[in-house]
Design a protein around this nucleic acid. Structure first.
Ligand SMILES: [Mn+2]
Ligand SMILES: [Mn+2]
Ligand SMILES: [Mn+2]
Ligand SMILES: [Mn+2]
Lengths: 218, 218
DNA sequence: ATTAAAATTTAGACAAAACTAAAAATAGAT
DNA sequence: ATCTATTTTTAGTTTTGTCTAAATTTTAAT
């Protein structure tokens, strides 16, 4: 697998292209910042290699083998992200770009040993689950903060938007994964929230609340 | 710099192509397991970019900028090798192949933090010096074991041949860097040596002795 | 100084991964 | 059901990195 092929497979996975769901070449192209015609070329190649199902004009979806491959790349990406944060003191907004490179390093031993060094982490710095060697992983029980009702309590466990600006915004406002949270009040007008974050009262916009995942206390 | 360009620069450095010494396209091709015509193409490109001096039919040598670039790649390669051995329990014969990939990862922060994580190592697992961020490094005072005279004592500090078979041979015979060594006797007939290695007497061939670096006790 | 052998470069080809512009198919609106 | 706008594919081009085969230059031997 070349780097381009791996990136393509990963993109299709992230856009949800498994099982019966097909992804349009256009949306893949948009996500990858490339042209639809390039995606068509790639679709043919990956189809020949048995990684995707491709029907002209109908989009692509991952084969079983394609899903396995995608998960192995995602596993590498997320383990490297954990490594960068835990061992090299990167901030969570700095890791993605470097992990995009590291995820393509070919060595099964390397990634398994890295997994062990990091003590077999279940989640990456953004709260996303890390697939095990066999591809298994369970999505955490979580919901968007914006979906919580007034009075509900929980813990921050992930971000939906993991762009650099959003992550930096969260840092600046002392919002971090693991923080406890309680919804005090909801403003009908703009859907902004008044919350208690680690005991500190603050007000956050709907845009923020709808990009922050929370695990509700049972 | 592309991966190919980086590999080319590194090869020229390892073949000694700096200062007034030019390297032939043929020897570069042989080292890189590619064809001389491909090297010629690359020489032109690298010359245009100011990394090498290239005169048709006269071979190539690194410019000052080329040397700096080569040292930065070698720095990365060797730091990753140390990481693999120290943190991921790779053996010294397993690291080179993976480091060949890792050396091309682009992130200054990554490599500087890795350096710190490893406690600023001076030598890689094969005893080769690791250039500092600014490119400076000093070659260790060392000589081939085969050059020691009878009665001389020292410590193993490096290998000249770092091929997998040689490294595995050394492991099998309990010869490791850091071991103390004393030359007991030299056989005129085949230049084999009788030595004391960490107190154990053993006999080693000239071929082995001429690929093992030793620091002589002063 | 010639000349043969070896080294090196040039010319032309190919594959991978991208692109643009044109053609074809699909989907949506009437 | 037709037509138009949008999506998608095709065809042809570009760049990078590689190759082979032919041409050229250098080197070394006579
Ligand atoms: Mn990421
Ligand atoms: Mn992540
Ligand atoms: Mn190495
Ligand atoms: Mn080494």
């Amino acid at each position: 697998m070349t780097r381009s092929e791996e990136n393509d497979i990963k993109t299709i996975y992230h856009l949800g292209g498994r099982g019966s769901k097909s992804i349009s070449t256009n949306s893949i192209a948009e996500q990858m910042e490339t042209k639809p015609s390039s995606v068509t070329d790639m679709a043919k190649k990956l189809s020949d290699k048995g990684l995707v199902h491709y029907v002209k004009y109908q989009g692509v979806s991952l084969s079983e083998f394609g899903v396995k491959t995608a998960l192995s790349i995602i596993r590498k990406h997320r383990l490297w992200e954990v490594f960068l944060v835990e061992k090299l003191d990167f901030t969570w907004d700095e890791v993605h770009e470097v992990a995009e490179q590291l995820e393509h390093i070919k060595s099964e031993k390397l990634i398994d040993r890295l997994d062990a060094l990091l003590d077999f982490p279940k989640y990456d710095p953004h709260g996303d689950p890390i697939p095990a060697k066999n591809g298994e992983f369970q999505e955490r029980d979580k919901q968007l903060l914006s979906e919580l009702s007034v009075g509900a309590q929980g813990v921050c466990v992930g971000v939906k938007d993991s762009s650099v600006p959003f992550l930096k915004f969260l840092d600046k406002n002392k919002i971090a994964l693991g923080n406890t949270i309680k919804v005090l009040d909801k403003e009908d007008f703009d859907n902004s929230l008044r919350i208690l974050m680690e005991g500190n009262e603050m007000r956050i916009s709907h845009q923020i609340a709808s990009n922050l995942f929370v695990k509700k206390n049972s």
